[in-house]
C-alpha cells in the first residue's frame, strides 16, 4: 500500500542533522528528555552558549540551526468526579513551545501538547504521588518525541522555500 521502509528512526532533513540546543534550564528534566530524544534520532547536539538570538543578522550567521524550548506549561485538571464530589480522574497536560531557527531561512515556532489521565485515591496519597511523578516524566518524554517527530516532518523544500 505504498509504505516504504524509512529505517529505524524518522528521517531528519539533512540541514537539521546538527543542531545547537539552547535552553533557559539546560539540565532540567524536559531539556534532558529532548537531548536524549535527539541523540536517539542521530542528531548531533551542540550546547548553545547564549539562550536565544534576537536579531536577524545574528541568526543568519549561525553555523547550524538552533533549536530549543521557549516555554512549557503543566496543567493538572479534574476530568471526572466520584459521587462524593472528590476527583476520580486527573488529567495532566504539558504544553511546550519550541523555536527552530534556521540560518537565512527564519524562525519556525513548534507547539506541542500532550496529555494523560490517571485515577486519584485520597486514601493512597503517597502511591498516587509516585504515579503522578511517573506520568509527568512520561509526558516530558512524549513531548520530546513529538518535538523531534515535528523536526523530521520538516521538508527540505519547506526550509529552503523562503531562502
Amino acid at each position: 500500500c505504498g509504505f516504504s521502509l524509512r529505517g529505524t528512526t524518522y528521517t531528519i532533513p539533512s540541514q537539521l542533522k546538527t543542531i545547537e540546543l539552547f535552553s533557559s534550564d539546560p539540565n532540567g528534566p524536559l531539556n534532558r528528555a529532548l537531548r536524549n530524544e535527539l541523540r536517539l534520532n542521530n542528531v548531533k547536539v551542540i550546547t548553545a552558549s547564549q539562550n536565544l538570538l534576537a536579531d536577524k543578522t545574528m541568526q543568519n550567521s549561525l553555523a547550524h540551526p538552533r533549536f530549543g524550548v521557549v516555554s512549557s506549561n503543566e496543567f493538572r485538571d479534574t476530568v471526572s468526579i466520584f459521587a462524593n464530589g472528590k476527583s476520580a480522574e486527573y488529567q495532566l497536560s504539558l504544553e511546550v513551545t519550541a523555536h527552530l531557527i534556521i540560518p537565512n531561512s527564519g524562525i519556525y515556532p513548534i507547539n506541542v501538547k500532550v496529555q494523560r489521565s490517571f485515577f486519584d485515591n485520597p486514601l493512597a496519597a503517597m502511591q498516587k504521588n509516585s504515579e503522578q511523578e511517573i506520568i509527568r516524566e512520561e509526558l516530558r518524554v512524549q513531548a520530546a518525541q513529538e518535538l523531534v517527530r515535528r523536526l523530521s516532518s520538516f521538508r527540505p523544500e519547506m526550509i529552503t522555500e523562503n531562502d
Binding site: M126, Q127, S130, E131
Partner: peptide
C-alpha cells in the same frame, strides 16, 4: 507504601512495570 497500579493506555502498555513506586 508507594506503589499504585498504573493504567495501561497505549504508552503505558510498553512500561517495564505495572506498579508505580
Amino acid at each position: 507504601i508507594d506503589s499504585a497500579l498504573l493504567q495501561n493506555d497505549t504508552i503505558g502498555l510498553f512500561r517495564n512495570r505495572i506498579y508505580s513506586g
